[in-house]
Design a protein around this nucleic acid. Sequence first.
DNA 1: ACAATAAGTGTATTGACAACACTAACACGA
DNA 2: TCGTGTTAGTGTTGTCAATACACTTATTGT
Lengths: 222, 222
Amino acid sequence: MNRDRNELHQVGVTLRVILFTIEDDQLSVVVTKRTIEPFKGSYNLPGGFIHNNESLEQAASRIVQELTGDTHLYTEQLYTFGDPDRDTNGWWITVAYFALLPQDMHTHAPFRINPSCALLPVEKLPTLAFDHATMIEYAVNRLKAKVQYTNIAQGLLPEKFRLTSLQKTYEIILNKPLDKRNFRKKMSSLGLLQALNEKEISGRHRPATLYKFKTKEQVFFD
Amino acid sequence: MNRDRNELHQVGVTLRVILFTIEDDQLSVVVTKRTIEPFKGSYNLPGGFIHNNESLEQAASRIVQELTGDTHLYTEQLYTFGDPDRDTNGWWITVAYFALLPQDMHTHAPFRINPSCALLPVEKLPTLAFDHATMIEYAVNRLKAKVQYTNIAQGLLPEKFRLTSLQKTYEIILNKPLDKRNFRKKMSSLGLLQALNEKEISGRHRPATLYKFKTKEQVFFD
DNA sequence: ACAATAAGTGTATTGACAACACTAACACGA
DNA sequence: TCGTGTTAGTGTTGTCAATACACTTATTGT
């Protein structure tokens, strides 16, 4: 370690973001179409370089903001991928982050306007460039795990939501149906939610109580 | 992303390893004394550069091997640290790994012979260079979490061990006493252990049955 | 043979998760 | 205004896992 910077091998560092949101009752991810070789025409994950004097977290947030227009979205470091053969075009290390975009915020996000961007359901992805399919797999697994012992699900929900929407979010991430009464009992016992004095009427049926998470901080339970 | 490598900012990548072992009934970590500024004279984590054509995993294993003489020790990527001010001596990103050295293997390991290396209990660490204290904290937390839902503890134990030693390992990592009967009941219900036809006699008391883990693979439970 | 020491073993209680079906409140149309 | 369609909201029971807790067994050294 005790060497001068000049001895450093020329490994490049990039950053990629797996931006999740729920669209059409499916967990989906933002990808961009490559315009150059290798993998020209294929989709890959959005990303970029780390700017000077920027932390990894800041770089990830910046890219998320470029895509969504929003700062303060939930963003978490996922894993660092560094196989020398993962990119045929030189030697790259990629730090991957994943981020969560609330359901109600993806209609007018910048990535919607950009024609080279697409929002694809994770269950029906085409072949992606490089090892990006692996990255998404890692991210989905992390999300599946954390939804069960943290309040991470709020990153995908609007500020105010119905319990049914919360349950649906869990079901989509976990990819399995949940029991309504048990789900509500569990949520209530965790004490993370606050019922609001507001109802949402959305059709000819009983109006739903709206809830919000008491805190935006990450909470671990179990 | 679609740019030539030459446009890359000059960020350097290093790798650090948190090598854990249990010594004297304490979770301990290998550190090395710095011989140059900054932090000359302080301890820091062992590490190095990523060699050409080497994956991150390979680089981590290589450093672990340099320290222990052993290949095939349990090694896992921990986190990538990239604050621009984490090193006053340039702009560095550090990929941190942690590794586990079985209790019975640390007496004659190379790091024992190297006078600049020390094995220090994590509860009594001096001030360390850079953000290495944070890295160790991350690693301890990861280890605490994973010992509860994986068979990761075997990385700290010899091939054959007494149930009492296994329990002790858990107690040291979790930093709390466990009930003997409940611990053994739980272990037995997981079905990960195999009782051997061997006893270990170590004093004037009933000899203990030796056990081994059925598989070296990482197993998740719960 | 007996004293010292660690190994090994069972039961009762408690709390969490799983399975399961009906009533409540509203909108709309006849 | 009454009936129908639709989603919201609510309890109980059984099962299984986690907890709390104390004595007997097998060996060695004197």
